[in-house]
Amino acid sequence: MVLAVLAGAPLVLAFCLLAIGAVASLLIGWRAGAAYPPAGPFVSVEGGRLATLQAGPETGARGTVVLIHGASANAADPMEGIGRTLAAQGFRVIAFDRPGHGWSDRLGAGTPASQADRIATALAILDLGPVIVLGHSWGGAAALALALDHPERVSALALVAPVALPFPQRMTLPWYWRLAAKPPVAWLLSRTLGPPLALYHLRGAAAHAFRPQPEAADYLDRARVPLALRPGALFANVEDLMGLPAALERQNPRYGDLRLPVLVVSGDADPLVRIDAQAGPLAERIPGARLVRLPGIGHMVPWVAGDRLAEAVADLVPVAATTR
């Protein structure tokens, strides 16, 4: 009898931890949603809605720039980092919450191509295009997919610290990460232990993303980062990241077919997406692409080198106009 009780103790403990985590996850998600409600118009597409943040003039604008954010983020990240600067310079700026992130519905879209399809539909509904598309990090892959699959919607690309090329085969995750990323396990963790653990590591993760620069003042609040702690967004982020290698393998052979102005911007001190592994080789693959190397700058280019980035994006306007 005693042995049976002892044998069952780990299961009871595991159940209790999951139950406590589930309650904590509900509270974390509720607090994030209440603190950062939708702050821009929605665009209804088949199966749901995409959330946007918009800034700048709707008429008489110098051009329209669409912002696509990276992993563990939402539309506020690029909008506050670079979007407000572009809007102040006379651009109309539209930042999308990618499907499953921020306040956008998931829409069954977990790959760069499928998310690009949903954004292209939204642009058509908004009667926008061709537009300059700026994608940061994971968003760079989505921006490339948008240009490849919907060229009528894109006049130029600005790829900022982009993740776009296949990863080396030797880059494999430890077994416990591979287990945690399995859909049933990831779903369970995203609704139990995931949000509390992510909340605990939130500040450190943000600081690491900004290195070697210091984290921008009030970054977590201005970029509405806690929205990524909600269970649905957490699970969507895992799906996006785990599906990215195969997606890049599929779209990588097509980069040489791009025939539009492409700007690739990356910091040479980026510890997350190294310029010699991604931005540099990518610029060589795309005909006519221009690589802007930022000495000493890390991954968060839109926040720490916003003026330089805005200047480079503005330079795309006359080039895009002549290539239409």
Rank of each mutant, 00 (worst) to 15 (best):
A113Y: 04
R92H: 09
G306K: 07
W177M: 10
R285Y: 07
A283F: 01
A236I: 05
P130K: 03
G83C: 02
W303M: 04
A156T: 07
A75E: 07
H208G: 04
Y219N: 03
I275K: 08
A207Q: 14
P245Q: 15
R290V: 06
Y176G: 02
Y255P: 06
V66W: 08
A164K: 00
A120S: 09
L17H: 05
M171W: 15
P184R: 13
L193V: 15
L199E: 10
P78R: 10
L27D: 12
L128Q: 12
L6Q: 07
G40T: 05
R250H: 13
P214T: 15
H201G: 05
G8N: 13
S44D: 15
P287K: 00
V45W: 15
L220I: 09
A206C: 13
R191P: 04
A88W: 06
I94V: 02
L229V: 09
F91P: 00
Y255I: 06
L260W: 01
P174D: 14
G90R: 12
H136N: 04
A113P: 00
A141F: 01
I132N: 01
V93C: 03
S25I: 02
A207D: 09
P78E: 00
V317W: 10
R84K: 06
M300N: 02
A180K: 03
R230C: 03
P168N: 14
T322I: 10
L260G: 07
G288V: 01
A109V: 13
G296F: 10
A39Y: 07
A109M: 12
P162I: 01
D77R: 09
G83H: 02
A209E: 09
A141G: 07
R84L: 06
R84I: 02
M171E: 13
P261E: 14
K182T: 15
L17I: 14
